[in-house]
């Protein structure tokens, strides 16, 4: 699994790639915590992600809570139908904004 970061108009975008989620442990949580020192607006792009597990769901929800506490927000983009199904099961869709386009996520975060 690989993680690339991009900056767009002050918003940090994490592109997560791969399917070996088991080997992906605390790195993303630490990276997001570090990133939150510079920006409180983050996009997590799951376009290349084939599977998700409860650990990554935990990272996303705790990051959302942290960024909300900093008056920012986190948006998930390009989640596959399967991953959105899992989000619904664990009610993540109730607390996280999920969009299909990066531009929609960027314009939403710019308004915050």
């Amino acid at each position: 699994m690989s993680l690339k970061t991009r900056n767009k108009d002050g918003i940090l975008i994490f592109d997560i790639d791969g399917d070996d989620l088991a080997t992906f442990k605390d790195d993303l949580r630490i990276i997001i915590e570090e990133a939150a020192k510079k920006t409180n607006k983050i996009i997590i792009n799951l376009k290349e992600l084939q599977n998700i597990n409860s650990h990554l769901i935990g990272v996303i929800s705790s990051s959302k809570r942290m960024l909300s506490g900093l008056h920012g927000d986190l948006v998930v983009i390009n989640a596959s139908e399967k991953i959105q199904n899992i989000f619904k099961v664990v009610h993540l869709d109730k607390i996280i904004k999920i969009t299909t386009s990066e531009s929609e996520a960027v314009s939403y975060l710019k308004k915050i």
Partner: peptide, 14 residues
């Protein structure tokens, strides 16, 4: 919903 524990078992159960 933000609590970290129990999601794995919940997913298996679901």
């Amino acid at each position: 919903i933000y609590a970290g524990s129990g999601r794995g078992i919940f997913l298996i159960n679901s």
